[in-house]
Design a protein around this nucleic acid. Structure first.
Lengths: 246, 246
DNA sequence: ATCATATAGTTCTATATAGAACTAGTTGAC
DNA sequence: GTCAACTAGTTCTATATAGAACTATATGAT
């Protein structure tokens, strides 16, 4: 189902309305990394010239991508990639009740990076067994709050195992975009609850069997291809997940 | 802060673009219950005649409300209230693993309906202390899965305590709309984990202190007024909450 | 150097128009 | 009765145009 190397740019479907064809064409160019985070896309005028469509139609195509959360328009300036607006960090779901109200220092440490063969459940999601696995530990002040296990398809993220540790910031999605041209556009979180396994307990400094919150996240690019799967554990009593429905 | 009786229809802000003024006017009329769930709103032509604006501007106003999730357009037919699309039932987060694959029968029982004075945290959200409290128990086959405590402002829901039990379906939001003209447009869920209190344990047939998932939900009307607050508990090992981010 | 002004380029609002696509109901043929 | 054809009404697509609002840069005066 999903493809793990750069998609072969499906031809626009002639049966679709013009504005949707243009939408698809632009989304494909964005997915190919044609424009960086801070370079403006072609203006409405340029696109009307390129395509022969009218401004109204071009605007409608762009507006569609804005609604989908991919682009962002700035009046007087131009149209840009939208920085993923959903707060990507799972970290924020673990409240730090600093009794004294001190500013605490968040820490983020990658404790392992290995090429690995994905188990079938994960391979089915990512579309390949040829993966890279990252293990990460996050905390605040002294408390360890989050143990993450992150799976990436090696075809898209080759070389991530060789990066200096310093080049990993606390947030991975900006790194994906800047280093590998992978733009995370959406994600699905699955929240559940389980007693800590021995491995998780050891990492978080908990007793085995202690209650933990489990977040499984699958992240997608614009075209709906899953490009990251992760599972995260943290102490249940610190956990609070907020979700807005509409 | 929020108002619990029908809002006094703020005058349109002349400084706003025409399409936003029309958006506000339409949203206000929707909030006042001017149109039922299956009656079409005025057509584009009617609205252009009423307002003196052009079709394009009218379309833009309507499209804004569609994007906000309030309305729904059906080509060839008309523009309607959108039925709240988010699956309102908290019940769905509790997986029933019927080992034998039998179709199970969900049950829903209101076990208490009382006028009550809301504690300050809830009163702050709902804007009043004068509330009605519903207690509900939901299950499937034999297993009890969900204990809910629901708080409603009495001003909007007066008479709900007198309804026949049979008039409560498994879903409350349709009842709110049909009986009280309250349209739930959005909600915020807060998910956490806690050991079962004595009361919750007794209701769900669990041991006191058994791990439970806790969902706190605040539900809002179109204009952002909170009109329902609930807290729900269920057995943690059955719980799985899914959320789509974008 | 600093500040005001002008300018080119961008998106945004608004109007007007035409026809296509679709829906729901009515009419008519059989 | 049943089915097909028609029709009025609706939303949807697409074009063309004009000016407003805003941004970023360049220019010029001091």
């Amino acid at each position: 189902m999903p493809q793990h190397d750069s998609a072969p740019a499906p031809l626009p479907d002639r049966r679709l309305p013009a504005y949707l064809q243009l939408r698809d064409a632009l989304a494909a160019r964005v997915a190919r990394g044609e424009w960086g985070p801070d370079t403006a896309l072609p203006s409405e005028n340029q696109l009307t010239a390129e395509t022969g469509l009218s401004v109204g139609t071009v605007r409608k195509a762009i507006q569609t991508l804005v609604d989908e959360g991919l682009l962002e328009r700035r009046q007087g300036s131009g149209t840009y990639l939208r920085k993923p607006a959903f707060n990507a960090s799972l970290f924020r779901f673990f409240a730090v009740k600093s009794a004294d109200g001190e500013a605490t220092i968040p820490s983020s440490r990658i404790i392992a990076r290995t090429a690995a063969t994905a188990p079938s459940a994960i391979a089915g999601i990512l579309g390949t067994t040829d993966c890279i696995r990252l293990d990460r530990l996050r905390g605040q002040s002294d408390a360890l709050l989050l143990s993450e296990e992150i799976w990436l398809p090696r075809a898209r993220f080759d070389g991530i195992a060789d990066l200096e540790e310093a080049q990993f910031g606390p947030l991975l999605y900006p790194l994906y975009l800047e280093r590998f041209g992978v733009f995370i556009a959406s994600a699905i979180d699955d929240v559940s609850f389980a007693p800590a396994s021995a491995a998780v307990a050891a990492r978080l400094g908990l007793a085995e069997g202690a209650p933990t919150a489990v977040i499984e996240r699958t992240a997608y690019t614009v075209d709906g291809t899953a490009v990251e799967w992760r599972i995260a554990h943290g102490p249940a009593e610190r956990f609070r997940y907020r979700s807005r429905l509409s």
